[in-house]
Every structure is written in structure tokens, then in C-alpha cells.
Computed example of a mutant assay.
Amino acid sequence: MPEVNSKPVAVQMLEITEHHAGQRVDNFLLTYLKGVPKSRVYRILRKGEVRVNRSRIKADYRLQVGDQVRIPPIRVAEREAPPGPSPRLQQLLEGSILFEDDSMLVINKPAGLAVHGGSGVSLGLIESLRAARPDQPFLELVHRLDRETSGCLMVAKKRSALRHLQDEMRDGRVKKVYQALVCGRWPKGMKRVDVPLRKNELKSGERVVRVDGEGKASVTHFAVLERFDRHTLMEATLETGRTHQIRVHSQFAGCPLAGDDKYGDEECNRQLRQSGLKRMFLHAVKLQFKGPDGQKLSIEAPLPEELSHVLVRLR
């Protein structure tokens, strides 16, 4: 059998900075020791081979700034490095930043780019950002957008900022506003869709969300921005943030999203392709929230040209 390349085996001593403070030690190790089986990580924790400040700790111990973490000699199989982002993609992402300070940034995510790698995607937005900023020790997604959805996406540059922003989202204090073109004429008076959604996974691994009484509570607020002969431009504001929520709630209202291959109307999509629509018409246009430093922020991402051109043709 060929030998497996591995990193040098030696005791490691790591000092915890603010970027990892508050994180569970098991989650820290699973990230730091990529390539080591999960069972092995938990075994060295149980045996006391991992020590913090020379003391044994449990897997749920939360790291503090200044903690000295001892990691025992452990072989980590070297993996072939995944291809990095092209200079063009790096330039596109850096040019798409709408807001940035010391603790976070908001980027105007391009349509067609997954937020992270996995499920057949080797390189996502967050991996590309990390590769473009090798000196940035911490970059984590605060929330997600579907691959075909463009617009405002928050990325934390500190763990404290990540916790703050996710707490704000969980408590409903982050306002997320989208623009969407739907097929058909939106029903008059329908301003709120409140139906539970349940996520299912098909045998192929594809995720499909359905309206289901046993699902999670889901609420979207809708407002008509402009009516066309056979389509309606909508503003959608999320009260909850379920997977595919706007897409499924629009379908439930009888007006599926334009260009949506999963929940949409095939004939409507075919006609709109002739008007130049090559993607799903869903754009995260605005975020309003309190930043980690206490400032009130309102960030907007202009509608992409390829979507604006579709509206011009419909008019």
C-alpha cells in the first residue's frame, strides 16, 4: 500500500485569541484538525490528551481569550488543496462589498455562486473570500442565500460579531427585504403568507420544501411594487428565515417566482427566457440591523442589470 502523507507529529500549544473565544473546544478541534476522524477527536478529549491551561476539559468547554490549548501528537492526513478562486472572481467579490468595518462586511453576492462549498460545489463565496484574504484570521457566514439568489449577505470577521449578528437574527431584529418577479397577477389584499414549511430530502440528496402542517412556522410579508400584464414585481420581507421560504410562499399564493426551476411555472419561465431572464428573479435588496458596535445600519444592493433589463422589456 502507498504511504499516506501526513503532517509532522508533535505536541502543539495554541493560544486562543478573540477570534475563537466562546467556541466549544470540540468544534474548535474539529475545524483545526481537519482530516482527523471525528471519533478520534472525541477520543483524545475523553482521555484528557487535550488540555486547556494544563487541565483536563470536557467537550463542551467554551474557550476563553488567552487559554493555552495543548493538542497531543496526532497524524493529520494531507489532502490535496482544492483549486483556489480565479483572480477574476477575487476581483469581483472585492468589488461587490457594500459595507465593511473591523468586525463584519456585507457583500452583494452574485447569482450563481454558492455561499459555501459542498454538495458538488468545490468553491463557494466564503472559501473564495478566505483565499483572497489569507491574512484575515476569521471569516464566517452569518446567514445564507440560495445559489441563484443575489444580494446582501453578511460575513463576520470576529467570532463576537458572528454571535451578535446571529442573536439579532434569531430574535427577529434583522430586517431582510427582497425583490422578486412572480408569474401571474398577485392576489389583491394578500400581504402576509403564514403557512408552515417542512424540508424534505429526496433520494438524490436534493432538498425540497413543502407547505406542511407539521412543518416549522413561516411568515413572509409581501407588497406589490409594479403590475405587468402577466407578471408582478413584489417586495418580500422575511419574518422567519426558512429554506426556500419566499419561493414556496409565492408558489402557495399561486404566483411562483419567475425563473425558478424547482417551484416555478415552466411555461412562464420559457416565455421570460425570451425576454432575457436567464436566472431566478430573486434579489436580497436591503438589510437593516444593529451592528456589533451598536450602530444602526441600512445596507442596500441595487438590482442587477440583468434583472433590470427584464423589467424594462416587460414595461
Rank of each mutant, 00 (worst) to 15 (best):
104 M>Y: 09
173 R>D: 11
200 N>D: 11
10 A>G: 07
129 L>A: 09
3 E>P: 03
152 C>I: 13
240 T>H: 12
291 G>N: 12
60 D>V: 11
34 K>G: 12
257 L>P: 03
42 Y>N: 06
65 V>L: 11
176 K>W: 05
267 E>R: 09
158 K>N: 12
302 P>R: 07
103 S>N: 13
157 K>W: 03
224 V>K: 08
143 H>C: 08
154 M>R: 05
279 R>N: 08
127 E>S: 05
174 V>L: 09
132 A>Y: 05
131 A>T: 04
202 L>W: 10
26 D>E: 08
169 M>A: 12
3 E>N: 01
45 L>P: 03
36 V>A: 04
300 E>Y: 02
277 L>N: 03
263 Y>E: 05
250 S>C: 15
249 H>N: 10
251 Q>K: 15
228 F>W: 11
224 V>I: 15
203 K>A: 15
107 I>L: 14
213 G>E: 12
170 R>M: 10
159 R>V: 05
147 R>E: 09
141 L>I: 02
161 A>R: 03
256 P>S: 13
58 K>R: 15
19 H>R: 02
261 D>Q: 11
31 T>R: 14
153 L>R: 01
11 V>P: 09
39 S>K: 14
90 Q>I: 13
56 R>W: 06
206 E>T: 12
146 D>A: 10
152 C>V: 08
167 D>H: 15
7 K>Q: 14
199 K>F: 00
288 Q>C: 06
75 R>H: 09
303 L>F: 04
64 Q>N: 15
133 R>E: 01
141 L>D: 02
114 A>Y: 05
143 H>V: 05
70 R>S: 07
64 Q>A: 15
63 L>C: 10
86 S>K: 09
104 M>V: 04
280 M>Y: 02
262 K>L: 14
204 S>W: 06
51 R>N: 03
54 R>P: 03
212 D>Q: 07
61 Y>K: 10
162 L>T: 01
145 L>W: 04
154 M>K: 03
296 K>A: 13
103 S>L: 12
163 R>D: 11
310 V>L: 06
201 E>H: 02
83 P>L: 14
298 S>W: 00
233 L>D: 10
99 F>E: 13
37 P>M: 04
39 S>M: 10
196 P>T: 14
205 G>S: 05
123 L>A: 03
35 G>Y: 06
269 N>Y: 02
175 K>A: 13
